[in-house]
């Protein structure tokens, strides 16, 4: 086994995952806010932020879907060792990771059901650009309006329309992340 795939986990899991969770929670509770995270060094090409989110939220109870460009032996091993999460297809995953184009179409992912809308997938979108400029956002967590660079608009409008069902998105870029829950209206 290549030892590179075993390195790069949290050195102090309890405290680093607590700090990372606070950053993710803060980003999800305030769509448009960009947070920096650190502590994980996943194998390329996974971004540091996506690696941190994986280590913080994934474990044997959360199946993960890797899009084709990320479905590499090194990443499978890294996730297997550090998170213990099974790698599955798009239709059964709790978390999906990949660039936007490879995550499409979104209707492959679990959207939850009307009695249990929480049983839906969270998508980690790897983006080359992340800034608090672009599409206008409105909804819970936003006092008036916020802005966030999004890969497109229509898909997120459609996602918000099926509320309380739908997907939640975490955008990762380098060591930074932002989030867009299903409750956010993209204008």
């Amino acid at each position: 086994m290549d030892d590179l795939t075993l390195a790069g986990g949290f050195s102090d899991p309890a405290q680093q995952s607590a700090q990372a969770f606070r950053a993710v929670m803060s980003a999800l509770a305030r769509p448009g806010r960009i947070e920096a995270v650190r502590g994980a060094e996943p194998p390329a090409p996974l971004s540091q932020a996506a690696g941190v989110v994986l280590l913080t939220l994934c474990d044997p109870e959360t199946p993960v879907y890797l899009t084709p460009s990320l479905d590499l032996p090194s990443l499978r091993q890294w996730i297997g060792f550090h998170a213990g999460a099974p790698i599955v297809g798009a239709d059964e995953c709790s978390f999906a990771i990949g660039p936007w184009e490879e995550l499409l179409p979104l209707d492959r992912f679990r959207q939850g059901c009307s009695e249990y809308p929480d049983r839906s997938a969270t998508l980690l979108v790897e983006t080359p650009l992340l800034e608090a400029r672009g599409a206008t956002l409105r909804g819970p967590g936003i006092r008036d309006t916020a802005e966030l660079s999004l890969p497109e608009i229509a898909a997120f409008q459609q996602n918000a329309r099926v509320f309380p069902l739908g997907l939640d998105f975490i955008f990762t870029c380098g060591d930074r992340l932002a989030a867009l829950p299903r409750s956010t209206e993209v204008v």
Binding site: S17, L28, T56, L57, C58, D59, P164, P181, S183
Partner: peptide
């Protein structure tokens, strides 16, 4: 740290994130 083991905390954290995404549910 903070009494609970890491796997329990991850489970609770995932629940908190879903709760924030669907306010009031």
């Amino acid at each position: 740290f903070a009494y609970l083991d890491e796997q329990t905390k991850r489970m609770i954290r995932r629940a908190i994130l879903k709760a924030l995404a669907i306010p009031g549910y």
